[in-house]
C-alpha cells in the first residue's frame, strides 16, 4: 500500500472509528513523523483527512498531572497553579490551556475576547478568530457526518491559512 500523502511505500497503517464509520489511512515513515503520528491513540484521523491543522504536528496532551508538568518558559508548575490560582507568565496560558479554560468557566460573561486588540495585531486577530470559528464548525460537521459541509469548511480554512502563509513568507 502507498502512503496517502506522498505515494511512497506506507509503513504506518491507522484505523479509526469516526462517527460510526471505519476510516483507514496509510503513511510512509517520513509523513508519519512529519504529522507527529508517533502515538496512534492520540492521533485524529479525521483531522488529517479533512485537513484540520495541516502540517501542524499533533502534540499529544499529557494526561498526567502534578508537579511534573511545568511551564517551559518560567518553570511554573500545575501544583503552583492549583495553589495560587494565578499564572506565572504569558506562556503558562499555553502550557496550562485546559486548566485555564476550566478555571474561567462561569467566571466571565463569555469565554472569548472581544474588545481592544493591540496595535498591529488587529488583522491577525480577526483572521485567527475566524479560523477558530471555522474549525469549530468543522468539528461539528464531522461529528454530524456532514462531509459535504466539512469539505467546504476545510477549503475555506485552507484558503485563510494559505493567505497567512503567503503574507508571512
Amino acid at each position: 500500500m502507498d502512503c496517502d500523502i506522498c505515494g511512497k511505500k506506507a509503513k504506518v497503517h491507522l484505523t479509526q472509528l469516526v462517527g460510526g464509520e471505519i476510516k483507514k489511512i496509510a503513511l510512509c515513515n517520513d509523513c508519519a513523523k512529519e504529522k507527529g503520528v508517533t502515538d496512534p491513540t492520540g492521533f485524529a484521523l479525521a483531522e488529517m483527512l479533512l485537513g484540520k491543522s495541516p502540517g501542524k504536528p499533533v502534540v499529544p496532551v499529557p494526561l498526567s498531572s502534578g508537579p511534573a508538568r511545568a511551564c517551559p518558559t518560567c518553570g511554573f508548575t500545575l501544583d503552583d497553579l492549583r495553589r495560587v490560582r494565578r499564572f506565572g507568565c504569558a506562556d503558562c496560558y499555553t502550557t496550562f490551556r485546559d486548566e485555564a479554560l476550566q478555571m474561567i468557566r462561569g467566571m466571565h460573561k463569555g469565554n472569548r475576547h472581544c474588545g481592544k486588540v493591540p496595535e498591529g495585531l488587529m488583522e491577525l486577530h480577526q483572521r485567527t478568530q475566524r479560523l477558530e470559528e471555522l474549525r469549530g464548525r468543522l468539528d461539528q460537521a464531522v461529528i454530524a457526518e456532514n462531509y459535504e459541509e466539512a469539505a467546504g469548511l476545510r477549503d475555506e480554512i485552507r484558503q485563510i491559512e494559505l493567505a497567512v502563509a503567503n503574507r508571512n513568507s
Binding site: 499564572f87 466571565h108 475576547h113
Partner: peptide, 26 residues
C-alpha cells in the same frame, strides 16, 4: 503598545496574572 510587546491571546485577550482579569483587563 508601540513601545512594549504585550501579552495577548486571540482567544483570551490580554493575559493577566489572575484569570479574573483576562480579556479586556479592564
Amino acid at each position: 503598545e508601540g513601545e512594549l510587546e504585550l501579552a495577548f491571546d486571540h482567544e483570551l485577550g490580554y493575559l493577566t496574572t489572575c484569570p479574573t482579569n483576562l480579556g479586556t483587563g479592564m
